[in-house]
């Protein structure tokens, strides 16, 4: 249970950073922390103690050995790739914003017009 709570704290860390920081790079980092906490949570729920990794070469193994749930792992695999795509999109926008305004501070960007 303490692991779930710790995971939740990681999520709160990310959210705190997301709301507090005014720098675009820091916002991306906070977003990554939130993503990481969600991935960890899903994998933690799918874990079976004493289970083997879901790579099986003989079918007989399944009779007497528990396997870690492969479904959350598949979902997280998809999510990691999508997170990478989102992050690169945000960073591309950040570099464009920097070229235009000369700053990463969103407070200053909202003050500057044009």
């Amino acid at each position: 249970m303490i692991l779930y709570i710790l995971c939740f704290f990681l999520l709160l860390t990310g959210l705190y950073g997301l709301l507090i920081s005014r720098n675009i790079i820091k916002i991306v980092i906070s977003l990554t922390i939130v993503e990481i906490s969600i991935f960890l949570m899903l994998i933690l729920i799918g874990y079976i103690s004493g289970g083997i990794a879901p790579v099986i070469f003989q079918e007989e193994v399944l009779q007497h050995q528990a396997v870690v749930d492969p479904l959350p792992q598949t979902m997280v695999l998809t999510a990691i790739v999508i997170a990478l795509a989102t992050n690169s999109m945000i960073l591309a926008m950040a570099i464009r914003l920097y070229k235009k305004y000369g700053t990463f501070n969103i407070h200053e960007i909202s003050k500057l017009k044009g």
Binding site: I43, I52, V68, V76, L77, I80, A83, L84, N87
Partner: peptide
């Protein structure tokens, strides 16, 4: 540690690229 080797491989690549 949580027995997810595929995820470890994907994550290490994704993290490095990020």
């Amino acid at each position: 540690l949580l027995k997810a080797p595929d995820l470890a491989i994907v994550q290490i690549v994704a993290e490095t690229i990020t």
